[in-house]
């Protein structure tokens, strides 16, 4: 079996952002369920947080391609 360890690293790098995005959207859903009229404001905040959190996973994907040798 052949492969590249860089992509294993990407898999590890995706764990944290995965959990983080799950937490963000769980909080968002909770917030909308409790206060449906706050949806617009919460959506903005949720997506800002998602963009920041996901940046790590995206950098991981890029580095996996860059360092695959």
């Amino acid at each position: 079996m052949t492969g590249n360890i860089a992509f294993l690293g990407y898999g590890l790098a995706a764990i944290g952002p995965g959990i983080g995005i799950g937490l963000i959207f769980a909080a968002y859903i909770n917030g909308v369920a409790r206060q449906p009229e706050a949806r617009g404001m919460l959506q903005t905040i949720a997506f800002t947080g998602m963009a920041l959190t996901e940046a790590l996973a995206i950098l991981g994907l890029v580095f996996a391609f860059v360092f695959r040798g």
Binding site: A51, E54, A55, I58, L59, L61, V62
Partner: peptide
């Protein structure tokens, strides 16, 4: 740096993968 980088690569990465 981070904003343009992630904006482009998020779309690219999702479509490629």
């Amino acid at each position: 740096f981070i904003r343009p980088l992630t904006l482009a690569l998020r779309l690219f990465g999702n479509m490629l993968a």
